[in-house]
């Protein structure tokens, strides 16, 4: 079977499919994604069991009804066992989100739910819970001239104790059809993430920042129902609380036995970057004002 090699998060990943617009790699693969039999860990070693996943050190098993079983092992292997006639785009979507995120945790990297953008030489991560507006903000900043390192999963490693480096993930962002229409983003190729979902992968081409960048700030997005746009510095123990809150799949991290490493990572990150909370209205009429405030406060 033909395979394809791409550079993702500083790793060479071997895929069973061609993926348009992803940066190719000529290096020996660090990670393999392949079809096969996916099996759960034995009960004796299992540390966490959810309704659709079973987790043990170096072993994550995910079974999604009518889509596929997935197994992520040892930070270097994702096995896909499709169910029925599931389409390739659906498989890619779950591999590049849940499975890859878990694999990066297995490789002892810090994974946050955050978009990462670079502008005026500064790299800022925008984190927050689901639906807080990360992707919409990424698109707005992209339109204003920013480059994108990551849309949803921010991967962070430490060059030394004083520099947190954020790794480039994929050259795309995900947007709902309604958001795309409102933002009138032109000049990029787009495709539905899955046939039945009205959400699109927007390939951002040259606006993808494809080299690791030192992270200067993490901005926690906190939409509210007031008209004001308000920045507040996060300090002390609140930094750890917020970093835990935006960490990718904390239950899975515990199930992998990686919670101590995770705590070391967020402690280190809390000591190396600026953290702010941005309270803002999710109001399309105020988008340009919001970007101006972010430029002034975080990218200047």
């Amino acid at each position: 079977m033909q395979t394809y090699h791409y550079n993702i998060c500083g790793l060479t990943v071997e895929f069973p499919w061609k993926i348009d617009y992803f940066p190719t790699s000529n290096q020996t693969p660090d990670v393999f994604i392949q079809f096969g039999v996916a099996s759960p860990p034995s009960k004796e070693v299992m540390l966490y069991q959810g309704p659709y996943c079973q987790v043990a050190p170096n072993h994550f098993f995910l079974s999604i009804d009518n889509i596929a079983n997935f197994m992520v092992r040892d930070g270097n292997l994702i096995t896909i066992e499709p169910q029925g006639n599931i389409d390739t785009d659906s498989l890619k979507t779950f591999v590049l989100s849940s499975c890859l995120g878990v694999l990066l945790i297995q490789r002892n990297l810090l994974v946050l739910h955050a978009a990462v953008l670079k502008k005026n030489g500064k790299t800022v991560a925008f984190g927050g819970g689901p639906g807080c507006g990360k992707s919409t903000l990424s698109a707005l900043l992209l339109k204003s001239g920013a480059g994108v390192l990551a849309d949803n999963i921010a991967v962070i490693c430490f060059d030394n104790k004083t520099t947190a480096m954020t790794l480039p993930s994929f050259p795309n962002i995900h947007l709902w059809q309604s958001t795309l229409d409102k933002l009138a983003i032109n000049g990029y190729n787009s495709k539905k993430i899955r046939p039945e979902i009205n959400k699109y992968v927007i390939n951002i081409g040259a606006d993808f920042v494809n080299t690791p960048q030192p992270l200067s700030s993490l901005c926690i997005l906190s939409p509210w129902n007031k008209r004001e746009i308000h920045f507040e510095q996060i300090t002390g123990a609140e930094k750890i609380f917020q970093l835990t809150n935006v960490s990718f799949r904390t239950k899975i991290t515990r199930g992998l036995g990686m919670d101590q490493q995770h705590f070391k990572h967020i402690s280190a990150l809390s000591n190396t970057i600026n953290m702010v909370k941005l309270s803002y209205p999710q109001d399309w009429a105020l988008n340009s004002t919001l970007i101006n405030h972010i430029d002034e406060y975080l990218f200047k």
Partner: peptide, 28 residues
């Protein structure tokens, strides 16, 4: 609560149709 649901599912509901999400809800 989307965050609590996604932590339990271990995948994002934004990748699913409304019908798929409803099929997963009892287990959550």
């Amino acid at each position: 609560n989307r965050k609590a649901i996604e932590e339990t599912l271990s995948f994002s509901v934004s990748l699913l149709s409304v019908e798929e999400v409803n099929n997963f809800r009892p287990a959550v």
